[in-house]
Design a protein around this nucleic acid. Structure first.
Lengths: 345, 345
DNA sequence: AATCAACTTCAAACCGCTTTGGACAGGCAA
DNA sequence: TTGCCTGTCCAAAGCGGTTTGAAGTTGATT
């Protein structure tokens, strides 16, 4: 059942039927009602492909996920971010197109997506220091919103980010307030922008108390359980082990906890741990009481908001770039406590 | 730059240009070369929307992810499965459209996707016992492939699944061979088909050795770290605790391990654990030596193959439904060992 | 009664490609 | 020479909607 057939059945022109269904005013209410009823009865659904060609809009947003060439792995936060964004798209009649792309091929994909008119705009994932993608997108005039930021980019662009710097600064201060002085940072890969900012926050907090950072206490790894475990083992095995860990992800945090408990130490009393919690649905930080003290910011909510921002930009192409900085909560769980009194031995 | 303009520049008709670019034979090799060169020079990209309307194909596949109404959470294996499928689509010029849908709305979405011609086929995720979706899809004549199976469905349909039953049977037998008799099963939610099959495999192995299953040793939960932890704590706190755990996911397995180590027990020597490892990229089971003994099957590879199957079905609509059963490997890690001698006390 | 504006409705063009059904030229067989 | 292929190329008709420009109706105004 297409528009022409429906129009024929109604004894109307396609024009009128189209307008009736799309709420245009130049159609009498009586025929509109008649058309609506007929459309429902024959469960008419306008063909997406025809609409897209006729209107010149793709009614779709692209998410380009760079994948494993060397460094990257399929990042688990994508799933929740995309779930959030997907909700927004669904509400607005947009489709979500997902491109999994080897990251040396990303440029080509952006260009194609734009030139072929497959999508109306894109979300940029995993921004890095001086990310060259933003330049490219600006050049070809492709609407986009960055999830995160790309330090070093001077021209204004649209982004939505968590205040990673402040979150990690606050977390560090919280540990310092408990008397911790040797705080290990188990960070993500530090060519990623978020990781850079988190380290900055950590260093700022230390500097503000006049504590010199110890390079041996800082590590930058992929955020897997195993890497977290290894990094923690390494730190704990040294002469002057840390009394606290600040960990960039829940998943690495599981590994850190394993390393700690394997040594017979107790989380929260012997050693403190703060993680960053993206509020992933399958990794809840406890049910009523949080297990970990954490800087928390829902990546799903970020997805929702980034999508809204992008749709707004697409609807108002002339408007200035938009930015939104979300603050992470610092939630207190059972994994932090005062520095234990040094053992007499 | 569109086809008409390009044709004009070349002094050819759109017909010829189109045919030259699409490799049709009724075009001389010399003009074909000329056209190709011009297309590259002006970097002409045919408009996706026009192609789709003209050919009547969407060149896109839908993945419908049901989401949190009550039971479900955003399943972490989706990310890897979709990454795998995405590779296949990219190779074949298809787009991947992701729909995040509250699961009471799933039917409507399938119907729309089909009636509006947004996608050419779909992958069904998370099949359940007697899943009503398959019936719906058959009724509206929508090509699909199920990731998993739906026990109870009598009409043949296309699916790709891991042999969950055999995997868990083998894993159970492996534990039995080590002398374990009290083996706890920490399963996923048992209205999901895969979980049902895993339990069946577990029960079969017990039955084959004449061991009566103990309901207290079986649990069915969402597969999160916390649930795994709780379930394990519960089992370990009883009078006759299990000497081994069979766990349906890596993530729950992390929780089980935590429960075990928290009690000062050693994984592999005091208590054995086998998990199912979907080979998620961000949850590697060790690097060289596997940490867990595991039934392993790459969900990413499953995604690749399911996508291939679906594209084949779309290309040959008249062909019979296809099925593929992947066998999981049983890989031996450090988390299993013989039953420890009972402590004298 | 004539004029005009407001309402409705429609025919046709258009979006940018694919595909059908020729048209034309050159080569070869009859 | 005529007829028939074969090889190239093209005009035009879709695909299924939206949108422009115009036309026909009505009712009110002058």
């Amino acid at each position: 059942m297409n528009l022409k057939e429906l129009a024929q059945k109604l004894g109307l022109s396609p024009t009128t039927v189209s307008r009736a269904l799309n709420g245009y005013p130049e159609v009498s209410e009586s025929t509109r009602a008649r058309v609506m009823a007929a459309a429902k009865r024959h469960n008419y659904r306008p063909n997406t492909r025809a609409i897209r060609l006729a209107t010149g809009r793709a009614m779709a947003i692209g998410h380009v996920i760079p994948t494993a060439s060397r460094h990257e792995i399929m990042n688990p936060v994508f799933a929740d971010f995309i779930a959030g964004a997907g909700e927004t798209y669904a509400r607005n009649g947009y489709d979500l197109i997902l491109s999994i792309v080897p990251d040396d091929d990303e440029d080509r994909v952006y260009r194609e997506l734009h030139a072929r008119g497959t999508v109306d705009g894109i979300i940029v994932h995993g921004p890095r220091l001086n990310d060259p993608r933003l330049r490219l997108l600006d050049d070809i005039g492709f609407p986009y919103v960055v999830h995160g930021r790309a330090t070093g980019t001077v021209t204004p662009y649209s982004w939505l980010d968590v205040n990673n710097r402040r979150a990690f600064r606050r977390a560090t201060e919280f540990l310092l307030d408990f008397g911790h002085r040797r705080i290990a940072l188990i960070n993500g890969l530090e060519f990623m922008d978020f990781a850079i900012r988190r380290r900055t926050g950590y260093l700022e907090a230390l500097a503000a108390r006049g504590i010199a950072p110890d390079p041996d206490l800082m590590s930058s790894e992929e955020m897997t359980e195993l890497r977290g475990y290894r990094a923690a083992c390494d730190r704990l095995g040294r002469d002057a082990p840390p009394t606290a860990f600040l960990v960039s992800s829940m998943i690495s945090g599981l590994g850190v906890r394993r390393a700690i408990e394997e040594r017979g130490l107790r989380l929260g009393s012997d050693i403190s741990v703060i993680i960053h919690d993206d509020a992933l649905s399958y990794l809840p930080n406890g049910e009523d009481v949080p297990i970990y003290t954490a800087t928390r910011s829902s990546v799903r909510e970020a997805g929702r908001q980034a999508a809204e921002m992008l749709l707004d930009i697409i609807a108002h192409p002339a408007s200035a770039p938009q930015q939104r900085l979300l603050e992470a909560e610092l939630i207190i769980g059972q994994s932090t406590g005062p520095v234990p009194a040094p053992r007499r031995s």
